[in-house]
């Protein structure tokens, strides 16, 4: 009778390696919070980063004598150093200065979420600046010439001709930046934000386990990356519709 209950060592190994999904299901609320925090962090930092990046990219592309080198320094600093240190500097570092501790901004800078958002936005702005700069500089000269010949001012030209066509060219690089930002956003969990990885860590700590929380987080990130790249493919198809070769089989509508 005894050996009926005995499990072979190999079986024991397989059982121990199996993912106990009930742990994840029981704590789905934690993961929902994590997903929400990750998505808002990524979306907001891309938005703020983008808002900052467009003017910076224009100054860089126009080779403004004073701003261009300064912006280069900014992008070099943020692109050449780890996001982890940048986030630590803002979250742990800024409290060192009494001026900041006494300032009106301290309630914001004390919160891990806002610190992560600031760090991510500044970081993303640096990358987006370089992406947009490349796209602006790649504007075909003929387009600019035609705009000038039509008597457009520089601002109108920027708004109507250069930026729209630059955004289209930047789209493939931009989809990479979105995925990098999603990957980078796990840094938020190191400053106590409950993002997807943070949710995984919380669940792991609750049950003294390692696999389930991290694996669930990995699967969630994989899904998000898949959805993002799918979305961008569709968007690219829509925006680049005029570049697609026309097939004789499906006549134009």
């Amino acid at each position: 009778m005894a050996d009926a209950a005995q499990i072979s060592p190999i079986q024991d190994f397989i059982v121990s390696a199996i993912f106990d999904y009930t742990v994840v299901v029981d704590n789905y609320e934690t993961f929902l919070i994590g997903i929400w925090n990750t998505i808002t962090l990524v979306a907001l930092s891309l938005l703020f980063g983008g808002l900052l990046a467009v003017p910076l990219a224009v100054f860089r592309a126009e080779r403004h004598p004073i701003f261009s080198p300064l912006i280069w320094c900014y992008t070099y600093l943020f692109r050449g150093t780890p996001l982890l240190i940048q986030t630590f500097l803002i979250y742990y570092g800024l409290g060192q200065f009494e001026v900041i501790r006494d300032s009106f901004a301290w309630p914001v800078l004390r919160e891990a979420y806002w610190c992560a958002l600031i760090a991510f936005s500044l970081n993303s702005a640096a990358y987006q600046t370089e992406i947009f700069r490349g796209a602006i500089e790649a504007t075909p000269f003929g387009e600019v010439e035609a705009a000038k010949a039509s008597g457009m001012s520089r601002l109108t030209m920027m708004r109507r001709i250069i930026l729209p066509s630059a955004f289209r060219r930047a789209l493939p690089a931009y989809s990479n930046e979105v995925i990098f930002m999603l990957h980078g956003s796990v840094i938020a969990s190191t400053v106590t934000v409950v993002d997807i990885l943070g949710a995984g860590r919380t669940v792991n700590a609750k049950y003294y386990i390692y696999l389930e929380g991290f694996l669930a987080a990995a699967i969630l990130y994989l899904t998000l990356v898949f959805l993002i790249s799918r979305g961008f493919k569709l968007w690219e198809k829509h925006w680049h519709a005029h570049l697609r070769p026309r097939s004789a089989a499906s006549p134009a509508e």
């Binding site: 995925i179 840094i187 969990s189 190191t190 990885l197 390692y210 696999l211 991290f214 694996l215 990356v225």
Partner: peptide, 19 residues
Amino acid sequence: RGIPDLVLMLLIFFQGQIL
């Protein structure tokens, strides 16, 4: 390329050893 580096690192460091 779909999973963030830190998540993989924690998975391998903690669970890899157990496995």
